[in-house]
Simulated scan of single mutants.
Amino acid sequence: MKKNVKIIIAAAVAVVVVAAFLLVLVNTADSSLDVIGKGSSTSFAEVLQKIPERVKIDDENSGYSLEAPDDTVRFIWSGDYSRSPLYDAMLEFDVQPFLDAGLDAGKLPDNYTLSGDKLLAGVKFEDGNVKEGAAATPLAAYERIVDQHRDRINYHSAMDHFGVKLDGGNMFEWAKDMDTNTVTGDVQDKDIVFVLDPEALIEAGVSPEKVEGWAYATVKVEENGKMVEVYKFLKPFDLNE
């Protein structure tokens, strides 16, 4: 009987030890093994350093902006979600090419806002453990997205790009490694790419082939475990030009 009791106690201790070990592994994975999150922060920092003259404080949106080399589109991300007036991350771009192609802005969904001669396509993050105060640097503001809204960070394997997912299939993407990024005539092989999903714009009257300044092309994306080609509006840039 005593022998059986000792076996039961030993088994119970072993279960506790294993459970504690598994808990450590889970906590470690959560805190330090987010490869995509950490890798995206490193490569995003490289983009910011590559074009510092294009990275600016954006007081209106309580954050920072990265402007395209052709001055027609910006990626804006908030450093203080409690103060961002419309969206916490967005693309801001010239609306005229889309108006010329038939856009009726009044028919766009809520993730779009017309502001003067600009159209905003953004996302308002769901409430979470919001940190008090504004992020002190552009990179810190991006890392706040990684920390609080990890599901918004994407790795596009077909293009070897990281990205911030906005609502409605819109995105801002950048090369995982600009030094090894293959730049060809393909609009996808660029250092940064501003991406708009055409569906909502087409439903609002846009004839996609008539939009000037944006490439209307297919890209490979993963859906239900398979790679498929879908159409996107793309504005890509090689930062070494």
Rank of each mutant, 00 (worst) to 15 (best):
M1V: 12
K2A: 15
K3S: 10
I7R: 14
I8A: 15
A12V: 13
V17A: 12
L22W: 11
L22S: 12
L23R: 06
T28D: 12
D30C: 03
L33P: 01
D34H: 03
D34C: 02
S40R: 06
S41I: 07
T42M: 14
E46D: 13
K50A: 15
P52E: 12
P52M: 12
E53L: 02
R54N: 14
I57L: 14
I57F: 10
D59F: 10
N61R: 12
N61A: 14
S62P: 04
L66Y: 01
L66I: 15
E67Q: 07
E67S: 06
A68Y: 08
T72N: 13
V73L: 04
R74E: 14
R74I: 00
F75P: 13
W77F: 11
W77K: 00
Y81E: 14
S82I: 09
R83M: 07
R83S: 08
L86K: 08
D88G: 11
L91F: 06
D94A: 07
Q96E: 14
P97V: 12
D100C: 08
A101G: 05
D104Q: 10
D104L: 07
D104P: 04
G106K: 10
K107T: 07
P109Q: 10
D110L: 05
L114A: 13
K118N: 07
L119M: 14
V123A: 06
F125I: 07
F125Q: 03
F125Y: 13
E132S: 12
G133C: 05
A136D: 10
A140D: 08
A141C: 01
A141T: 00
E143C: 08
D147F: 09
H149G: 02
R150M: 04
I153D: 04
I153L: 11
I153F: 08
Y155A: 08
H156S: 08
M159T: 08
D160R: 14
H161M: 12
F162G: 06
G169Q: 04
M171E: 15
W174S: 06
W174V: 05
W174D: 11
D177N: 13
D177W: 00
D179E: 04
V183M: 01
V183Y: 03
T184C: 01
Q188Y: 06
I192D: 10
V195Q: 03
A200M: 05
I202M: 04
G205W: 05
V206S: 00
V206C: 00
S207P: 00
P208I: 01
V211Q: 00
E212R: 03
W214E: 04
T218Y: 14
V219L: 10
V221D: 05
E223S: 10
M227H: 04
K232R: 15
F233D: 01
K235H: 13
N240S: 11
E241C: 03
